[in-house]
């Protein structure tokens, strides 16, 4: 760990200005070093956990409703404002709920990506 010399970019002074600056961690990802892979896997895992969470909530709601109607038959006949409860839920309330869930997901997914970008693009303060 300590014996490795610090990496430097060897360039001629004439071309250095034309080069785009590359941050160390994006290069780790490009060269598929173990460190780069760790970062990539952490990003994929974070996003996948979020996706899985949303899908689980969705499965509970969507999968739970028929079960609820099956186990509690009196709910099938309940009425809200003169309309049957199953209709109020399935033909009305569920749509804004889906949109709300999607909105929350988009917000969190973008936040995860921003965090990853900040992490990868920040200059490394300490040697790994």
């Amino acid at each position: 760990m300590t014996g490795r010399p610090k990496r430097v970019t060897v360039t001629s002074p004439r071309t250095a200005a034309a080069r785009r600056p590359r941050h160390p961690l994006t290069r780790e990802i490009d060269e598929q070093t173990r460190l780069g892979e760790v970062y990539m896997r952490s990003l994929v895992r974070t996003q996948f956990r979020l996706a899985l969470f949303v899908c689980s909530v969705l499965a509970c709601v969507v999968g739970g409703l028929p079960l609820l109607f099956l186990l509690a038959p009196e709910l099938r006949e309940a009425e809200v404002l003169g309309l049957p409860l199953p209709w109020v839920v399935l033909a009305g309330l569920i749509y804004p709920a889906l949109v709300g869930g999607a909105w929350l997901y988009v917000r969190q997914a973008e936040r995860n990506e921003r965090d990853f970008a900040d992490l990868v693009e920040a200059p490394m303060k300490t040697e790994p």
């Binding site: 949303v54 899908c55 969705l58 049957p84 399935l90 033909a91 749509y95 999607a102 997901y105 997914a109």
Partner: peptide, 23 residues
């Protein structure tokens, strides 16, 4: 009433698509 699930699924499918596939 059972057929109310059809439009719910055709809309909700986009939520699954959003979280698992879109980006």
């Amino acid at each position: 009433a059972d057929m109310l699930w059809l439009p719910v699924g055709w809309t909700g499918g986009y939520l699954v698509l959003l979280v698992l596939v879109s980006a």
